[in-house]
């Protein structure tokens, strides 16, 4: 199935080649979980600090391991960042 991935800030280095700044459409296994997707792109658990699926947070650990992704989902990932 096809998913949209968005890797931001220092995680942009894990994006496959492409034109967009931090967005790619990728083909993945149909039954992929969120944690498997993250590890598939070599992002460590510590680096995947903020993870959104379609704009909604998914906590680290079990929630990500259980979370099945579906066709067309957008997964956005940030390392530990802050501002204000």
């Amino acid at each position: 199935m096809n998913l949209n991935i968005e890797f931001y800030a220092s995680l942009m280095k894990y994006l496959p080649p492409g034109k967009s700044r931090f967005r790619r459409e990728v083909k993945v296994d149909d039954d992929i979980t969120l944690s498997r997707l993250i590890s598939q792109f070599h992002i460590s658990e510590a680096e995947a600090h903020l993870v959104l699926v379609n704009g909604h947070f998914v906590n680290c650990g079990e929630d990500r391991a259980q979370r099945k992704l579906t066709e067309g989902d957008t997964v956005s990932i940030w390392p530990p960042v802050a501002g204000g």
């Binding site: 968005e6 931001y8 800030a9 220092s10 931090f22 510590a46 600090h49 903020l50 959104l52 704009g55 947070f57 956005s76 940030w78 390392p79 530990p80 960042v81 802050a82 501002g83 204000g84």
Partner: peptide, 25 residues
């Protein structure tokens, strides 16, 4: 040693929030 104050803020500054806050709605 903290990833935010040791790496995130010096590299990207507060402006890294633009996509984060937009992303969460």
């Amino acid at each position: 040693e903290n990833a935010v104050t040791g790496q995130g803020l010096p590299a990207y500054g507060t402006q890294v929030l633009m996509n984060v806050i937009n992303g969460v709605g």
